[in-house]
Amino acid sequence: MIPATHVLVLASALFFLSLTGLLIRRNVLVMLLCIELMLGSVALVFVALAEVHGGLRGQVVGLFVLAIAVAQIGIGLAMLMLLYRRRGELNPTSWERLKDW
């Protein structure tokens, strides 16, 4: 039996790793993957906490998070197709048509 603390440490490491990735990478695809990883790590937190508190509520939340993450990636990939078709690259800093202040 793995203690819940181990899982929580893993989840927080995963969360901050993906947050770092989101902040330093300049590619919309990788940024999208990092967001999904953040959601996955929070789902892991909920599952671990469900173990601590007993009951199924945390696990149910984890399942919902996964389902929503799938919906999000569905729209995200459609968006990537739209962005890539026009420019042939996915660097978000090259999209600054609206960036006057």
């Binding site: 968006m79 978000p92 609206l98």
Partner: peptide, 9 residues
């Protein structure tokens, strides 16, 4: 498209 990308991320 740019609006979509910015709000989505």
């Amino acid at each position: 498209r740019e609006a979509l990308m910015k709000s989505f991320i």
